[in-house]
Computed example of a mutant assay.
Amino acid sequence: MTKHDATDLQALIRKIQEHTATAEELRRFLHMTEQPAMDELLPYGEWQQTDGEALPPGLKEKVIQAAPQRRMRLLKSYLRKTLPYAAAVMLLLALHQLLPRIGQRTPALLTVTSKDGEIKRITLPDSTTVILNARSTIRYAATPDTLREVFLEGEAYFDVRANEHKPFVVRSGALSTRVLGTSFNVRAYPGETQQLGVVSGKIQVSSPEGKSVLLGKGDQVTYDAAASFVSIATDPQQMSNWQNGIIDMNNLTLQQVAAILERWYSVKVILLSPGIGQHVLSGTQTNSSLTATLESICFVYNLQYEQDGQIIKIREK
Rank of each mutant, 00 (worst) to 15 (best):
R121K: 15
V112Y: 04
A94E: 09
S114V: 08
R105A: 10
P100I: 05
A108V: 12
S127E: 13
I102H: 01
A94G: 10
P100R: 06
I122M: 05
H96D: 15
I122F: 06
L91D: 10
L91P: 09
L110S: 15
L99F: 03
Q104W: 07
I119R: 14
G117P: 00
T106A: 12
T106L: 12
T106E: 14
K115G: 08
D126M: 05
L109H: 00
S127L: 12
P125N: 11
P100Y: 00
L124E: 15
L109T: 06
P100T: 03
L95W: 08
T111I: 05
P125Q: 13
S114D: 07
L92Y: 09
G103P: 03
K120I: 14
G103A: 02
G117W: 02
L95E: 05
R121Y: 10
L91H: 09
S127N: 13
T113K: 11
T106P: 07
A94R: 04
E118S: 01
P125G: 11
H96R: 15
P125R: 13
L98D: 15
T111W: 01
K120V: 06
G103R: 01
Q97Y: 10
L110D: 14
L92S: 05
G117K: 01
H96A: 15
P107W: 04
R105P: 01
A108S: 06
L92P: 01
Q97A: 10
P100D: 04
Q104I: 11
P125I: 09
E118M: 00
P125M: 10
L91V: 11
Q104L: 12
L124S: 13
M90F: 08
I119E: 09
H96M: 07
L91S: 10
L91E: 10
P100F: 03
R101L: 10
L91C: 12
L110W: 07
I122E: 04
T106H: 05
T123A: 13
M90I: 05
E118V: 01
M90Q: 14
R101T: 11
L95D: 07
D126K: 04
T106V: 10
L98E: 12
L98P: 02
A108L: 08
S114P: 14
H96K: 15
Q104T: 08
I122S: 02
I102C: 00
A94C: 09
L124Q: 15
K120N: 12
R101I: 08
A108N: 08
T111A: 03
D126G: 06
V112G: 00
R101F: 06
I102S: 00
